[in-house]
């Protein structure tokens, strides 16, 4: 079933919407949640919560890219669960590595609190990524949005792992410089 048809089911308040959503993207959502939570049972619980939030969000929302829309909800729920999940924080999960890497984009002078400013920063991140070369852009998004491992990214893009690592390093550094130039320091 295509995404528009699934969204239509949500709007019709048909519970088939959730089963169709799960059938099409359930495996992907579970793998994303597992990369963050490092625990299959927690990931399943996370997905259930995310589906409930999706059910409440559509309508009124009418997402253009359903996978990304629900994926964002899944990751938000997973991060909330992670805060309470000390086992995952102790290490071993992909998210622990991702957090370490993202620290490089952050200055130690202030924190981001303002919602309006957050939106502006997201816009700047979008701008920055669209300006990147295809390799840098896709590697960055696969790593920090899809939470894929470096080896998985290398396999997907058919380039050496070292090249992915260098690309991520450069993009993180440039993102920090770009945001600073635009007046944002995280």
């Amino acid at each position: 079933m295509d995404d528009n048809a699934i969204v239509r089911l949500f709007w019709e308040r048909s519970e088939t919407a959730l089963s169709e959503l799960s059938k099409k993207y359930g495996g992907y959502f579970i793998s994303v949640a597992e990369r963050i939570l490092y625990n299959h049972e927690d990931a399943k619980e996370c997905i259930n919560d995310a589906y409930l939030k999706t059910w409440n969000a559509i309508p009124p929302a009418r997402p253009n890219v359903l996978k990304a829309f629900v994926g964002k909800i899944v990751k938000c729920v997973a991060v909330s669960m992670l805060r309470a999940n000390t086992a995952a924080k102790r290490g071993g999960s992909e998210i622990a590595l991702i957090y370490d890497e993202l620290e490089e984009c952050i200055s130690d002078t202030r924190s981001v609190e303002n919602e309006f400013e957050n939106k502006q920063i997201i816009e700047k991140i979008n701008e920055f990524l669209w300006r990147c070369s295809e390799l840098h852009r896709r590697a960055f998004v696969l790593r920090y949005w899809h939470c894929e491992s470096v080896s998985a990214i290398a396999e997907r893009l058919d380039v050496p792992e070292n090249k992915v690592s260098v690309s991520l390093y450069r993009t993180r550094r440039r993102l920090k410089e770009y945001l600073a130039k635009e007046g944002f320091e995280l």
């Binding site: 997402p63 890219v65 996978k67 990304a68 852009r137 896709r138 998004v141 949005w145 899809h146």
Partner: peptide
């Protein structure tokens, strides 16, 4: 980030 970036990746 932009949904298109997510799909594009």
């Amino acid at each position: 980030i932009d949904d298109r970036l997510i799909s594009d990746a």
